[in-house]
Each structure stands twice: as C-alpha cells, then as structure tokens.
C-alpha cells in the first residue's frame, strides 16, 4: 500500500493498494493546498483503515504545476516518507492522467500566466503503462495550436490529477522494476526574478 499525493493542480490524496484506490480526497481548489493536505492525509488513512507504518512508500506527483502549490505536496510526501522510513516514489503528474487510456493522448493542464503545460503519450504497450513521447513542456495559450495541430492525439484537459491513479501507477511501475520518476520538481519555469543593476557609486 502507498500514500499518494498530488498538488500540481488542486489537491488530491489517496491510499492505494494493488487492488486499487482504497480511499481518496480531491479538491479542485488551486489555492489552499497547505490548508487541506493534513486533513486529507488523515482522512484517507482512516477511511482505508491503514496506519502510517503499514505503508510501503509515498507516491507523489512532481508536476508540472504552478510552483507554490506543487511544493506543498512534494514537501509533505518527502517528509511523510522520512517519518515512516519508506521511499518516495515520484511520478510526472501528467502520467497519471494518461494511465489507463488505450489511445494516443495529449494531456494538458493549466500552468497559469496564460500558459499551458502538456505532455504527449503513445498508445501503451502490453504492460498498460503510459509511454510519454514528448513533454512535459510549456506553451503559451495563444500559440497552443502548434501543439494541438499534431494529428492523432486525443486531448485531455485535466483540472485535477487523481492521486489514486498516480499511486496505482507508481506501484505498477515499481512492481515492474521500472525506475522512479524525476526526483526534482518539474517547475518548467525559472524563478521569477529580474536582476537589478547595482547603482554605481565611486567609493
């Protein structure tokens, strides 16, 4: 069993086992991640009737996502895993959306600032696991035609990432002996700063 957390869009927390999702809480609110995360974790553990030490690890969506909220889930997952001395299983959040689809898909999420984050997936192989062939990447909304113009992909606009699917995917990948996802957050943007020129003064 895993605890699974994704805060790349709204907040989604689940407990999953090899039989599927045992409990899940999801909020589409793109603010308030820090508020709900504790309650959601407590509730899914209680509903799934699982004590923290019984978990095998913590799956977490690494983004892409607007960074303030994204960090809340990653921080919670890393520290929860530390607290129970189990591994973190990172997953690119878009992979959870593509998981379970039999056709070729284009996963799209809001990246704010008039940009969209997207990833492209080939049809899955025999193991059913998503095969990301392009992305995750950022493209301005105004230029998004350049992304959608590639024929043959079913576009999925995901308002939330399902932590249950994300967790089941993490388990399936691990059971298949595949390497974990990226260990660093998928921010896709540099920190938002402009370098101010220091004022020149003769000493």
């Amino acid at each position: 069993m895993l605890l699974a957390i994704d805060t790349s869009t709204g907040t989604s927390v689940a407990v999953v086992g090899r039989t599927g999702t045992l409990a899940e809480r999801t909020s589409a609110d793109t603010r308030g991640h820090a508020e709900v995360i504790g309650t959601f974790i407590t509730e899914v553990l209680a509903e799934a009737d699982v004590a923290p030490p019984a978990l095998e690890g913590v799956a977490v969506g690494m983004g892409p996502g607007p960074f303030t909220g994204l960090r809340v889930g990653i921080a919670a997952a890393r520290v929860f895993a530390l607290g129970i001395d189990r591994p973190v299983l990172p997953v690119v959040s878009h992979d959870a959306v593509a998981y379970g689809r039999s056709e070729r898909v284009l996963v799209v999420t809001d990246a704010r600032r008039r940009e969209l984050a997207w990833s492209r997936y080939a049809a899955p192989g025999a193991d059913g696991l998503p095969v990301r062939v392009e992305g995750p990447a950022l493209t301005p909304v105004a230029e998004f035609d350049t992304v959608t113009s590639v024929a043959g992909y079913v576009r999925i606009d995901a308002a939330t990432i399902d932590a249950g699917l994300l967790g089941i995917l993490a388990l399936a990948r691990r059971d298949a002996g595949l390497p974990p996802g990226p260990s660093a957050p998928v921010y896709l943007r540099a920190p938002d700063v402009t370098l101010a020129a220091p004022k020149k003064v003769t000493p």
């Binding site: 995360i37 504790g38 974790i41 553990l45 923290p52 921080a75 997952a77 520290v79 530390l82």
Partner: peptide, 9 residues
C-alpha cells in the same frame, strides 16, 4: 505542508 505530514506519519 511538511510539518503536518511529519506529525501524521
């Protein structure tokens, strides 16, 4: 976020 997770864990 981290503190809540650690408290629960």
């Amino acid at each position: 976020g981290a503190a809540k997770a650690l408290a629960i864990a």
